[in-house]
Design a binder for these strands. Sequence first.
DNA 1: TGGTTAATTAACCATATGGTTAATTACAGC
DNA 2: GCTGTAATTAACCATATGGTTAATTAACCA
Lengths: 122, 122
Amino acid sequence: MPDALSQTFAALSDPTRRAMLARLSRGEANVTELARPFLHEMSLPAVTKHLKVLEKAGLVVKGRDAQWRPCRLNVAPLNEAESWMEECRRGWEESFDRLDAYLKTLQPKPRGTPDGEGEAGK
Amino acid sequence: MPDALSQTFAALSDPTRRAMLARLSRGEANVTELARPFLHEMSLPAVTKHLKVLEKAGLVVKGRDAQWRPCRLNVAPLNEAESWMEECRRGWEESFDRLDAYLKTLQPKPRGTPDGEGEAGK
DNA sequence: TGGTTAATTAACCATATGGTTAATTACAGC
DNA sequence: GCTGTAATTAACCATATGGTTAATTAACCA
């Protein structure tokens, strides 16, 4: 799946990677710094691989300073992912509005809606 | 990875599933309706599987009406995913603020900051 | 009872993912 | 030119994912 959104969401679908992003959201870090919290659960190469996933998704940009690779967060893909979700929720809310309007159409009862057991549809 | 956020993001990391969610965001649909746009690219069982992924992630709720399974979108997991991202971006923005404050500390130049080539750090 | 439609399950396959250990590259400092 | 540190690559393995076809379940209809 080479499309950007899929890569972004896939990158976010792992708790290790999310933790790395959260770490980077508080400032630059090189690979060993990033890896430190996980070195009791997994090896350094595993971290490198996770980092590569984040990089390919564009969420992390890796620089170079001698033998260190200072990494920083890039939020652009996050924004695109968020706006997809936003769009999705927007449609959902509109579908509620449409349902609401439809129900008003069905039940013209113009005076005080004197209570009622609810149970509108079924 | 049984944690909810991971499941949500993983569910969103496939274009077919996102398209199904987008469809559901405009209103309920049963499985064949949901599947229709994809039946030229994949089989019905494939769609069923995608649907199951969405269901396990809590993004879709499947009802039953005779032999039909009316599906509707549930946005709650979307909200949680979005707020994780929001939190991540928040940290990122704060780190910018901190950098800004730090730079002001370094460069007390109290009068008009008469321009400057930028190039603050390096 | 038998036929049709909706949907799922079973069995299988190829590739992707997430991890390992061991080897390798790249750089700094003496 | 060695030695140590940072990081990646290589080779490998187990399991997960995304798809297939064929069979099955479940409901309606007549």
